[in-house]
Amino acid sequence: MSETAATTTGTTLRSGPGRLLVAVYAVFALAATARGTYQLLTRFDEAPLAYGLSVLAGALYFVAAVGLARAGRTSRMVALVCVSVETAGVLAVGALTVFWSAGFPDDTVWSNFGSGYLFIPLALPVLGLWWILKVHSEDRRETPPAS
């Protein structure tokens, strides 16, 4: 555990708004993974692409939640990558489902930009990006790079 090395950054990334972000990410990780896995297992033939994407989204949410909660320097980068991929994912899948609905016979978490989930899947990565970058810049201002 790199907890001691990352005390200052460690507390900021998972405290304040980060605390809420981790909770939302955890719930969405569970929702997307459970839904996708169940659909893959029971109805694989109907819409493998949609169900696979749900599982992928769930996995991304999970890694992002853990990255935010662990809050070290490395996990911050991991969370940043995850959240970026998510942003791309929700935009791409959202656009695809709107313009090429034939490819998606069944919905994913990201369908129509997450409209089935109150557009939270669209807002979540944006808020995540904002929070990680904010903590990152504050952290750089407080502690000048060592060596």
């Binding site: 304040g16 605390r19 809420l20």
Partner: peptide, 28 residues
């Protein structure tokens, strides 16, 4: 999920000593 959600979020929110603790509970 519903059996685990309230205690998990209560603990997670209670650990935070700012206004974001109640925000976690409100979400849950």
């Amino acid at each position: 999920t519903i059996a685990l959600l309230p205690p998990a979020c209560a603990v997670w929110g209670f650990m935070e000593r700012s206004k974001w603790g109640p925000a976690v509970i409100a979400f849950a």
